[in-house]
Nucleic acid binder design. Structure first.
Lengths: 140, 140
DNA sequence: CCTTTGAGTTACCAAAAGTAACCTAGTTAT
DNA sequence: ATAACTAGGTTACTTTTGGTAACTCAAAGG
């Protein structure tokens, strides 16, 4: 189970990371990947995408109740930024009271698959992390 | 290239997400995966792990200069929390001036591999995201 | 004895997130 | 006919977090 990067892997990994982080200060609008990671690098975006993955469509208040702890304001802000990036669809039905349905775009579904992998890793390694926290708490 | 979750995949995905998010309000300390995602869900943690992936060991100021934009304070805070979670090793050499070397633990290297996949996805889909932002800016 | 050095702290200020009240406008209940 | 309810927000205000700059520590070198 122990994953270690051995030396012959390292060069490959280094090159990859260099490309991702654009270490060499590119000419124009340096490193868009950083910019994108910064976008869904906050917890509400991740939860929102995971929650939207459960159903095809979800209304605002359904999302709000399923994402425990999110405030109304932060949910709107998060959904707007995901919509701006083309990860989420927002369909407004002009009724009273209003009805708004949110769903993942194909792009958003692609990101969902990546996040599921990340979550799998988290689930697999959670015990190690909790142990490490225990150790850290005791040694200090 | 278009990734779409078809209906027969959805049930599987739903079950997976339910497990990850612990929808059914578990007895004690509900959903550790949420907790963990919240930890490296900030941008400095992601950059720090990616940067530490480039070399086996890096000293504090080397890290600071390679992670563009990070402040001294935020780097210490980020490194401490990664150390607490057992993702990063911190070795202090009792010299004057002090020398401190940081490196990824095997656990951290496992997370690095996940983040590389995420970054790959970002690189692959960046054009679509930038297009979506253009559209959003114009339509408003 | 004054400066430099690396790896931090501390104090202070700005920016982001959380809280709670308010808004809209048509439908139902009183 | 007016009051309350509805869903999906917005606005104003407070608290928490992040960023900036100055300070610390202890020994070596000038």
């Amino acid at each position: 189970m122990e994953v270690t990067i051995v030396e012959n892997q390292r060069l490959e990994v280094q090159k990859k990371i260099d490309k991702i982080l654009c270490g060499k200060a590119e000419v124009e609008s340096c490193c868009p990947v950083k910019d994108i990671l910064a976008r869904f690098g906050d917890k509400w975006s991740i939860y929102t995408i995971l929650t939207l993955g459960k159903q095809e469509k979800l209304r605002f208040n359904e999302l709000k109740s399923q994402i425990s702890g999110v405030s109304q304001r932060m949910l709107t802000v998060t959904l707007r930024s995901l919509e701006e990036d083309g990860l989420v669809n927002r369909s407004v039905y002009p009724e009273i009271p209003p009805r708004v349905e949110y769903s993942l775009t194909p792009l958003g579904q692609g990101l969902l698959l990546q996040l599921l992998q990340l979550a799998d890793w988290a689930k697999l390694n959670i015990d190690q992390i909790l142990e490490a926290r225990e150790r850290y708490a005791h040694k200090s």
